[in-house]
Design a protein around this nucleic acid. Sequence first.
DNA 1: TATAATTTTCAGAAATTTCTGAAAGTTCAA
DNA 2: TTGAACTTTCAGAAATTTCTGAAAATTATA
Lengths: 186, 186
Amino acid sequence: MKLTDDSQAFVLHFGEMGSRWGFNRTVGQMLALLTIHSEPLNADQLAEALKISRGNVSMGLKELQAWRLVELHHRPGDRKDYFTAAGSIWDMARTVFEERRKRELDPTLSLLRQLLLNEPQDGAETLAQERMREVYSLLELLDQFATTLSRLSEADLQRLMKLGSGLGRLLDLKDKVRGGASGSGE
Amino acid sequence: MKLTDDSQAFVLHFGEMGSRWGFNRTVGQMLALLTIHSEPLNADQLAEALKISRGNVSMGLKELQAWRLVELHHRPGDRKDYFTAAGSIWDMARTVFEERRKRELDPTLSLLRQLLLNEPQDGAETLAQERMREVYSLLELLDQFATTLSRLSEADLQRLMKLGSGLGRLLDLKDKVRGGASGSGE
DNA sequence: TATAATTTTCAGAAATTTCTGAAAGTTCAA
DNA sequence: TTGAACTTTCAGAAATTTCTGAAAATTATA
């Protein structure tokens, strides 16, 4: 498994961005390689191509499976496990988006629900709790919105994302057509 | 500066979530404390409340200023620098969102633009480049969409995020009203 | 059932990130 | 100017995360 310069660059870049996207370097590299390599790869091939240890590959694959970003395949007469990226690029993006929503929002929502049950004991606490409530409202709305987005079909997502500043106009259009009294569909 | 249990919990939680949100533990804690504390705080107060070193506070404040998440204040007859969270919770969320868009998408877009200029030399490279092109298209669209979102007024953002599954219906509505030929506003 | 092939685990090593605190730098009032 | 008040810097320490590789576990074949 020898990578071309461009594939190498792509793989190394994903490794560097990995930590910002929620996984570690080698997981990022593995995901990149499986994304651009059309044929399934086994653990030894990944280790050789990325020059990382076999154990690291095993842990990385475990994590990518937990994210549901890779798919397992088997070849007749070969006992090794082979992997490909799971689904289309859009499928993968949706998966990462949804998983990050869970990791980055849910724990905070859960804590804030707890804290907001308590009675503030003085003025400072009341003010602090007001701010926490604002944080909670915003994050809850964001969480719902992210969930809504990740449930849209690819076609709808593309339409939405291509709107550009038409999005603002569309929101106005809605208010005109439906009289502004709609919105909280669920 | 003694924190109540709830404030403490909030601050510690932000510290733990910090790394998932793009900053380190103490930066997360400082942001949390400044968010729930209505009065401006100086560096010594932050260091004491969070039990971290003065140097760490200085670096953290520098980073929060780079993010434009804190505002500097001065008190008459006091040479110390005082800080508050910059703007409303919505302002801060918008700032974080926009900064993360830049950090998490722009470097990859930039690299992919480079790589996609090169001619693939064989079948495998052609396939790899096709996948890179798909990644590029998706990330570019996402980048535009994120930019669009971060430019919406708070009111529009709230309306949009409250749509729930009404968002899908709204997209259909648009196609009906404008005949489906619109969309690429810019 | 043995044994060969393969994957997983995990203790410790290596790498990276974060934090401390003392020294250097800056600002301002007298 | 001087020096007191304050902030910043940064080398090394501490903490955390990631990685390695050998041993243990699992699975399939003969």
